[in-house]
């Protein structure tokens, strides 16, 4: 698949898709979106690269082994739950901190966000692991 149009499109699309995936992840708690969709979106970007340029190039662009993403994602999700054990709360209780940003309003940060990032990375990693593996087989 060496279509020039596809390759050019992918070059343009990849950064957009990645930015959009992070956008989806971050706004997921308050608007439609979240770790699952975000992770899939990010994976879609690299899947396109993989189709247009081959998985070797896609891996080079990604730099990180998708298997590593799975591990980090699961670990993040797990640790977001373990944090609560210090505070003597049940596993996976959400803990929130409110940051006041003056005129910009306030920012609420909590362990569920960490958890969602874990979901994002896992989904991203799993999808790419599968696609790369299927492409490289044979």
């Amino acid at each position: 698949m060496t279509s020039l149009i596809l390759r050019t499109m992918v070059r343009l699309l990849l950064p957009l898709l990645l930015m959009f995936s992070v956008f989806l992840l971050l706004r997921g708690h308050n608007e439609p979106g979240g770790g699952f969709v975000g992770g899939l979106m990010a994976a879609t970007g690299f899947a396109l690269v993989s189709i247009a340029f081959g998985s070797t190039t896609a891996r080079q662009v990604l730099r990180i082994d998708p298997l590593f993403l799975i591990g980090v994602g699961l670990l993040l999700a797990l640790s977001s739950g373990l944090v609560t054990l210090w505070l003597n709360q049940p596993f996976l209780t959400g803990i929130w901190y409110k940051l006041s940003l003056g005129t910009f309003g306030k920012l609420e940060l909590g362990t569920p966000l960490l958890f969602d990032i874990g979901v994002y990375l896992t989904v991203w990693g799993v999808t790419l692991t599968i696609i790369f593996a299927l492409e490289e087989v044979g």
Binding site: F36, L40, V123, V126, T127, I130, A133, L134
Partner: peptide, 12 residues
């Protein structure tokens, strides 16, 4: 999402 995982695994 899970059925995606299942499909992929089944394909493999």
């Amino acid at each position: 999402v899970i059925s995606f995982g299942v499909t992929a695994f089944a394909l493999a």
